[in-house]
Design a protein around this nucleic acid. Structure first.
Lengths: 241, 241
DNA sequence: AAGTGGTCTAGACCACCAG
DNA sequence: TGGTGGTCTAGACCACTTT
C-alpha cells in the first residue's frame, strides 16, 4: 500500500510543525514555493495543506499565506478516530491496560442492546478492558467485535491495540465511525471497577466501520467524569444540510 | 460573495439525499455521470463529494461508487460549528431563548478566566442566555464577544443568533473553533437557573475564530447532563501528528 | 504590479471491481 | 474488458493583500 504524494507532503509538513521548524504564528512557504520544494503540482500541494487545515494545524489567509496555528491544544486528537494505545504512545502517558474479558459470544450482549437498540444480533467477541493512568482507573472500554469480519482476537493483541490488530494483522481498512457522548447511570459492577463515588459516568458510544461500509465494532467507553476531557477542532461548514 | 461551483454541487447533492432522491444504501451517479449532469470537471465533482464524505453523508468505495449512508444519526451536526438557533430551525424543536444578560464589560469576567486561564483581558460584551425545550432548561450559554472586532450586540440579535449577526450584519467570516467537553461543578446560581438536582453539569467550552485567525468569541455552555448529547462523525486520519 | 491563495479545467495513468 | 474511484499534472483566471 503506497501512500499518496499529497499524504507524504502533509505528513512531512505536520512533523515539521510539530518539531518547531515552522513555528506558531509563522507562515509556511507559499504554495508555489512548496511546489518547487516537493516537486509536486500546486493542486497536490493544496491537498496536503487541506489536511493540515482539517487538523487545525494551519489557517490559510487569502492573499497572505498559510499561518501555523497554536498546536498545544490540539495535540490530543480524540476527534478523528484514534485508539487509547495510539494516544498513550503519542502522549507518553504512564498508562496501563487490564484485560478483564475476551470471549466469543453467540449474540449481542444486553449491555450493547441497551445503547444500540437498532443493532441486530450477531456472533462476535466481547472484550472488556480497564485503562489506568498513574494507577487510577480512568476508562472502562467494552468492545464488541462482529464476526464476521473479525474471527478472533488474541489476548495479546487485546492488551495492546485492537485497531492495530485489525489494520495490520487482518489487513482491514478502518474508515469511519459515529460517536455519541452522553452522561449515563452505570451499574454497581462498573462503579466498582472504575472506583467511582457515584453511579454517574460519561459514556462515549461508537460504531466503527470499514471502508466498504461493513460495521465491525461497537464500543462503549465509560469514563471517570473527573478525568474525562474531549477536545475538538471544528470548521464552519460551507453547506447546510 | 459568490459560492464555488463545487459548493453548489455539494449543496444540491446533500439536499437530494436529505429529501430521499438518493436513498440510504443506493449509489450516487458515477463521477463521470455527475460531470455531465452538472457541467463540471471531474475534480470539481470530487471536491463536492469530498464535502459529503466529511459530513458522513456518503462513503466512496473504490471500483464501485459513492454509497449513501444512513442519514438519521447525523442530522444533528453539533460537530462542526453551528449555533443553537440553526439547530433549532433545522430540527424544528419547540425551543425558547431567555436573554439573561447583555452588557459591555471592561475586562474578561472571572468565569471565563477560570476556564480560559491563558486568555488576556479584553473589553467585550457578556451575554448570558438560557435555552429551554418544552419549558425545561437544557443549556445555559455564557458568551464573551471580544471588542474588537465586535463593537456591540443588539438585544434583538442576541435573542436570535449571534452567528447570524456576526456573519450577515457585520460581514465577518466565522471560520474555526476549538472545543473541549468536560464535566464540571457549577455554582448555586447556575444550578438554580438550570433547575438541576445537583451541581454537576456538562461544560462545552469553545474559542471561536475568524478566517484571519482573530479570536472573536469565547463560549461556555453549561448543559443539563440528562439532556446532553453530542453526536460526532469521524474519519480515520491518513496522517499521524 | 507582484505575490498569495481560491477555483476550475482537460487530460492522463493507476488500482479496484464487475461481468 | 469496461466502468469506477484515486491521484497527479500543467495551465488558466480570479480576488485579495501588499508594496
Amino acid at each position: 500500500m503506497v501512500k499518496a504524494k499529497s499524504d507524504l507532503i502533509a505528513q512531512d509538513l505536520a512533523s515539521k510543525i510539530k518539531h518547531g521548524q515552522f513555528k506558531c504564528g509563522e507562515y509556511l512557504p507559499s504554495e508555489n514555493q512548496l511546489t518547487d520544494l516537493y516537486g509536486a503540482s500546486r493542486e497536490t500541494i493544496r491537498k496536503a495543506l487541506q489536511q493540515l487545515m482539517t487538523f487545525g494545524l494551519i489557517q490559510k489567509i487569502k492573499g497572505k499565506g498559510s499561518v501555523v496555528l497554536d498546536l498545544q491544544k490540539f495535540a490530543f486528537p480524540i476527534s478523528g478516530i484514534s485508539s487509547f494505545d495510539e494516544l498513550n504512545k503519542s502522549l507518553k502517558m504512564h498508562a496501563e491496560t487490564r484485560l478483564l474479558q475476551d470471549k466469543m459470544v453467540n449474540s449481542l450482549p444486553p449491555l450493547f442492546k441497551k445503547y444500540f437498540p437498532e443493532q441486530l444480533s450477531n456472533t462476535g467477541i466481547y472484550v472488556e478492558r480497564l485503562r489506568l493512568i498513574n494507577d487510577e482507573p480512568v476508562v472502562l472500554d467494552c468492545d464488541f467485535l462482529l464476526n464476521p469480519p473479525v474471527e478472533q482476537l488474541p489476548a495479546v493483541e487485546a492488551k495492546h491495540s485492537i485497531y492495530s490488530y485489525i489494520e495490520n494483522q487482518l489487513g482491514l481498512e478502518v474508515s469511519y465511525a459515529t460517536k455519541t457522548i452522553t452522561v449515563e447511570k452505570i451499574t454497581d459492577d462498573f462503579q466498582k471497577k472504575l472506583q467511582l463515588p457515584n453511579q454517574q459516568a460519561v459514556l462515549v458510544a461508537s460504531q466503527n466501520y470499514l471502508a466498504d461500509t461493513t460495521l465491525f465494532q461497537l464500543t462503549l467507553s465509560f469514563h471517570n467524569p473527573r478525568r474525562f476531557k474531549f477536545i475538538d477542532f471544528a470548521r464552519r461548514q460551507k453547506i447546510k444540510i
